[in-house]
């Protein structure tokens, strides 16, 4: 971040993609107006601004090798996200980032990776997997097992990419839904159950978990039972944020801040910091 701390970089929306059947999750592709894109890694986030509506944090959905633009996938929730969803190509928004710490890509080298995601939080996992599938990382990483669940089939993000990942030989993809429709041929179960039933090998594995609080809560014991140690389970945390740099005081877990010390923590760290994860 080379700009004055709270003054965002101006970004032009170049493309908006309506991602899901409920039309409440859009992906925004942004190009910088002046200046380049500050280097970032999967797991980091940025504060996006709609001037007049405020600012909120979103994980990078794009991956660093996708140069020229950045992408964020945003679910419509409240004041800022509603205004953002009204904007189309040509509109100018603000971006402050990257903020926070990335996934520890070095730690994944030579390890198998179990990735568990649910809901819109899958965006940051998309960035992680797209990065790990690049030539630079592919050779060094072990096998990736990806679990991704949503409430019903129309809610999967990045469907085109998921189709391509089906055939990637480094990756085994496990999709699930809570409730099927006539198009759905896959399993109908909750994410934690899918992980348990699939029982991926864990001897040499690191797990990454990202999703709604309930999914996280029920997935953690499954991973531990399968044999992933608490220091090898990484969780990307979410807390209400404003400053994103450890000043405004609201996103703390005990003495640490999710914005500046996270958002990625190991389960071991979380257990020492808080009861609420």
């Amino acid at each position: 971040m080379n700009r004055s701390l709270f003054v965002p970089q101006r970004m032009e929306i170049v493309k908006v993609t309506d991602e899901v059947a409920t039309h409440d999750i859009f992906t925004f592709e942004l190009a910088p107006l002046g200046g380049g894109i500050a280097p970032y890694l999967p797991g980091q986030f940025a504060e996006l601004s709609v001037f007049g509506a405020g600012e909120a944090p979103f994980g990078y959905a794009s991956s660093p090798h996708e140069t020229g633009t950045v992408r964020f996938t945003v679910k419509r929730m409240g004041a800022l996200t509603r205004e953002l969803h009204r904007l189309g190509p040509g509109a100018v928004v603000g971006m402050r980032g990257p903020l926070g710490n990335p996934f520890p890509l070095d730690r994944f080298e030579g390890r198998d990776l179990i990735v568990v995601g649910g809901g819109y939080a899958f965006t940051t996992l998309r960035s992680l997997i797209a990065t790990l599938l690049t030539d630079k990382h592919r050779k060094r990483a072990g096998r990736i097992t990806l679990f991704y669940g949503v409430r019903h089939p129309g809610l999967f993000l990045y469907k085109g990419e998921l189709d391509r990942w089906r055939t990637a030989k480094e990756l085994s993809l496990h999709l699930t839904v809570d409730a099927a429709d006539e198009t759905w041929k896959g399993p109908v179960k909750l994410v934690p159950d899918l992980v348990r039933d699939t029982a991926p090998a864990t001897e040499n594995a690191v797990a990454v978990v990202c999703g709604p609080p309930a999914m996280i809560r029920f997935t953690l014991p499954v991973l531990e039972t399968l044999g992933v140690g608490e220091e090898n389970i990484l969780i990307s945390m979410e807390r209400k944020m404003k400053c994103g740099v450890g000043m405004c005081g609201r996103c703390n877990l005990g003495p640490r801040f999710v914005c500046k010390d996270g958002p990625v923590f190991t389960l071991k760290e979380l257990r020492e910091l808080t009861d609420d994860y």
Partner: peptide, 24 residues
Amino acid sequence: CSCFSITDTGNRRGGRRVRYWDAC
């Protein structure tokens, strides 16, 4: 105590981004 919040005052055409004291 120095916790704060950040908000925009103004409308879509113009205004200010301000920070103000907030509390745990």
